[in-house]
Design a binder for these strands. Sequence first.
DNA 1: AGCGAGATGAGCT
DNA 2: GCTCATCTCGCTG
Length: 212
Amino acid sequence: MGKLKNEFYTRRDTVAVARGLLGKLLVVPNKNGERVSGMIVETEAYLGERDRAAHSYAGRRTARNEVTYGPGGHVYVFFVYGMYYQLNVVCGKSGSPHVVLIRAVEPVEGIETMRIRRGRATATGFCADKDLTSGPGKLCIAFNIDRELNGTNLRSGKIWLEDYRSVDEEQIAVGKRIGIDHAGEDALRPLRFWIRGNPFVSKPRLEISAKN
DNA sequence: AGCGAGATGAGCT
DNA sequence: GCTCATCTCGCTG
């Protein structure tokens, strides 16, 4: 169960990384060293300066997205909607600000820890298991991911990815990315990937084709 | 089971 | 000022 090598993030195109991340295990140990982990079931590719949906579109390089201009194999975490964080993996080589957004995982280890953290975000203090990590904001709460992790190397001891399950190509569903209607034609591109039928996928019904 | 509003802050797409 | 790579709750039916 070793951490994924750096080449996983740097050597292939971003779509291949987004597909390849399905079935991998996201691990973020807590302060006691307990493993909190989940299998990635939904991703989106953001293709840098020529992608209207990307933060770096048209060369907008700012303090916020600076780490996306660095080498692949690091984490890009940003704050959105005044309340939520989003976890991304930086891909490719320095100067090419491509990322893959991790949109959903299936809980594997540390599930009780996730229940406590997610319960704090609800009025009742309770969170159904199917809602623990079934969205980009939810999984950041369940894994305690915030801006402190921005820029962290994925081969550090704070957050990493491991091999876990292999996913056949025909299990991968493809669709439009979520929440980027402002991106014009790029909003239609088939850059969202998920494991068909997995109950932790955030919006399963938007499949536009089974193959790329 | 599906919508609309509200929460909340950072960057202007 | 307004727009978000969102989520929860409360209303409808």
